[in-house]
């Protein structure tokens, strides 16, 4: 229908957008084009409307538990309109680029773990995430042991002992434990044009 075509045409990533997105991110124009190939594939897996819906993200992330899926989706969905647009997709993926500043990765990881978006990582949130993973993995852990693990973690990270981890406490803690950021870098992004060579058929520029 005409409305669908008009809506789709406004979502098509034209050359100026590609250039702007490349300027705003760690990606070259060709890499943004290659990521657009990935975006198109993800965004048509259930509803072919050029937008990633939550169920499409769930499908791509192999049926992750709701707790994590909701948080990841919220971080992608900057406009809070219930869908992920290509621009929002690039804004998140650039944080995961191997060359992205470490502070951006630290901030993003903080936002992931701050499930209730209170500006702090609280004990209940950590408990909730660990319990969800235990359930996901069919692992059994006594409440006593789980409490001990969380107590030990907060004893290390919560330096002012107010029962919650602030952004600054998180920054200091992560810099002491850099392995916590390993999921925040996706090596694929360094070679994305090779991973999605089909962008060449639609490319508008040569890098």
């Amino acid at each position: 229908c005409f409305d669908c075509r008009r809506r789709r045409s406004t979502q098509t990533c034209q050359h100026p957008d590609l250039t702007r997105l490349a300027h705003e991110s760690q990606f070259s124009v060709n890499e943004v084009e290659a990521l657009h190939e990935l975006f198109k594939k993800l965004s048509c897996s259930i509803i072919d409307d050029g937008l990633i819906h939550k169920e499409e993200l769930r499908l791509a992330l192999f049926q992750a538990p709701n707790l994590f899926l909701d948080r990841v989706f919220d971080l992608f969905d900057e406009k809070k309109n219930g869908v992920i647009e290509f621009e929002e997709f690039i804004h998140v993926l650039t944080v995961f680029h191997p060359s992205a500043p470490i502070q951006e990765k630290i901030d993003f990881a903080f936002r992931l773990y701050d499930l209730r978006q209170t500006g702090f990582i609280e004990r209940e949130e950590v408990h909730q995430m660990v319990a969800a993973i235990l359930k996901e993995s069919d692992m059994l852990l006594s409440d006593e042991l789980l409490t001990m693990i969380i107590d030990k973690t907060f004893a290390d990270a919560d330096s002012d002992k107010d029962g919650k981890i602030s952004k600054e406490e998180w920054r200091v803690y992560v810099l002491e434990h850099p392995s916590l950021l390993k999921n925040m870098t996706l090596p694929y992004l360094k070679d994305v044009t090779t991973a999605f060579p089909s962008f060449i058929f639609n490319t508008e520029v040569e890098d």
Binding site: R71, V72, V126, H177, L180, A195
Partner: peptide, 25 residues
């Protein structure tokens, strides 16, 4: 091995691991 809750979450959570986006390509 997992005496740190965040270590446990980042090692075990598939939900926060965006590499699956590329693996599904």
């Amino acid at each position: 091995k997992f005496f740190n809750a965040f270590e446990f979450i980042s090692s075990m959570s598939s939900g926060f691991d965006l590499s699956s986006l590329f693996e599904s390509k």
